[in-house]
Design a protein around this nucleic acid. Structure first.
Lengths: 345, 345
DNA sequence: TTGTAGGCGTTATCAG
DNA sequence: CTGATAACGCCTACAA
């Protein structure tokens, strides 16, 4: 019952022609009689013939498949990126094979192995929080495998990086808070080994400085996990401590920002009047909570789409990796909601 | 620079043995001298040999890849399912190739085509909202391709379905609302062609009936899109109309529930005292909004994991599809938060 | 203990 | 216009 996928051979046998003829007829090669073409195509349709992509891959040493290595699928931003990847890959006739690392370095390495075994044509990578060295990627690049990194990008030779303007996103967010009159702004920062975290911290610092506020290092608090639970706890501690109370929070991500918001509410503080809050990523829930959470929107879909376009262009030799000397940086957009706009009296 | 992946042939040539010997040595076949094995393995390691999965697939007519067809990646529940799929597939040595249909019937069909071309070993499917007939799936089943459906499952012969107990989830949610004293409960329902929507409606009906409340059909309102915007609009209309004001909303999903919540707030109604609200799916944001949204939790990860286990067992013939006569139904859990618990006076 | 030959499905090359 | 052959990388009877 199973199987029985018709092959070129089947068609050839039935029609008493050679497989080469069938192959050529199927792809409208010159030098095949219309009569033969017709017969071949008819039978192919009837037998529901479908080219065997595996055989093609073997023959061409090309799999028309790209591998995506991503920290987490259950993540608004990353899933949006995947959506962009899937869209472009699909429309250009490529398959997407997906692995998530769950933020584990080992998974990252083993994913690469499997994908290499599967002869994928190129990689799209956002590395894990655990990843500290990039030799596994450098090796691939040295061997000539196309890789495009997105969002979490390494600083290594030959890497092509697609990212958002984390620096400006943070700068805009913090500037906005300052303009609203907030002065002691806590930054709930991300893991320091991620370039994106560093950039956001840099944006935070520069915004303060440029507005004549001295940077107080103790206001930069790392939230390694980036969950609302973690940040809620951390924020509660901060609010309880003796130091001068902060009047605003800029979260490295929306979860952290929400955690801070909840902690503030717990402490009986009014948002936005007592405390202003801005997050990063513009997760769906930002507009659903009360008060709405201001946030820096990242173009996830475009990022995925752009990264995929570049990768496929390289694969198809439409683009020479050498040509791309600079990283691609996509703009962010600060979406202002109630959580950071003081109500005038 | 590129390529140069070592093959069995390369090793054989270098060692002056035949490729069969190398092949056998690599997999510790009996009847190969330890000496040869050692040399082969050494060289393989040195050359960084990696079996070519494509060649293997061709040879075995098995790709060790499963295809996942899903409506949306950017969706808390579905991304959770993907995570479960990825986890199990990965641990059992399978690749996951992913396509999203964006709720389009045509994409669903074309995804199947591509996957068939790619000789995938089996399908995991949750069909699109547009899908009305299931011939494309029936055909596959008739041809003997293994398919496991999850969440959005069809009622067709031979289909193996993994779903959550939508009926009971809805029943529990509505019963809870009734026990809290809510009487005019609106159900913001999903598209009627989805079995899951129907089941939830059935649960809604039975809960009312069992508690001696007559079902008022006008309280079952379809929200085809299931977005918060849509439901906010619909709810606003309802609240404005002359009919007796509802005192509770049971959403077919969390977005719909949030939309209702926002509309109620807009109308100056207190939640939960004036209006009680319960959603479905327990998206992350349920615990982050104010008041917390009660919701029926669906075990997405387990669903993905379970569906994948069944599929792989069938593929590996550990399981006969005929054996599975009933669908697998996973339990839901009602998580009660503030949005549906009336504060006693 | 090892080698040879054929084949998985397709197509490029070289002959007719 | 069409056919035969070889090759992509691997495995496995069958032979030696």
């Amino acid at each position: 019952m199973k199987l029985g996928q018709a092959t070129i051979k089947d068609i050839a046998r039935e029609l008493n022609v050679s497989s080469s003829t069938v192959s050529r007829a199927l792809k409208d090669y010159p030098g095949i009689s219309d009569e033969t073409k017709r017969k071949v195509k008819e039978l192919a349709a009837k037998l529901n013939y479908r080219p065997n992509a595996i055989a093609l891959s073997l023959r061409k040493s090309r799999s028309f498949t790209i591998g995506v290595i991503i920290p987490e699928v259950v993540h608004f931003f990353f899933s949006t990126v995947i959506s962009g990847i899937e869209e472009v890959a699909n429309s250009r006739g490529y398959n997407v094979i997906l692995t998530q690392t769950n933020e584990k370095y080992d998974r990252e390495r083993s994913s690469i192995e499997t994908m290499l075994s599967n002869q994928i044509d190129g990689f799209l990578v956002s590395y894990s929080k655990e990843t500290q060295d990039f030799d596994h990627f450098s090796n691939l690049l040295d061997q000539g495998y196309p890789i495009v990194f997105f969002d979490r990008v390494p600083q290594i030779p030959k890497a092509i990086n697609v990212m958002v303007d984390d620096y400006r996103g943070a700068y805009d967010a913090v500037s906005h808070l300052i303009r609203q009159g907030y002065k002691r702004i806590i930054h709930l920062a991300g893991p320091k080994n991620l370039a994106i975290s560093k950039e956001r911290i840099r944006g935070y610092r520069d915004a303060l400085t440029d507005h004549g506020i001295e940077v107080d290092e103790s206001l930069i608090v790392e939230c390694p996990l980036g969950t609302d639970t973690e940040s809620r706890k951390i924020t509660t501690e901060i609010l309880k401590s003796d130091s001068v109370r902060p009047d605003a929070f800029f979260g490295n991500n929306d979860m952290a920002a929400v955690g801070a918001m909840l902690a503030c509410k717990d402490a009986g503080l009014q948002i936005p009047n007592d405390v202003g809050i801005v997050g990063f990523s513009n997760w769906q829930f930002c507009s659903m909570i009360d008060p709405g959470l201001s946030s820096v929107a990242q173009p996830g879909f475009q990022m995925g789409a752009k990264a995929t376009e570049i990768l496929l262009d390289i694969i198809e030799k439409k683009l020479d990796p050498e040509q791309i000397t600079e990283s691609v940086t996509l703009p962010t957009e600060l979406l202002i909601r109630k959580s950071s706009v003081r109500i005038k009296n």
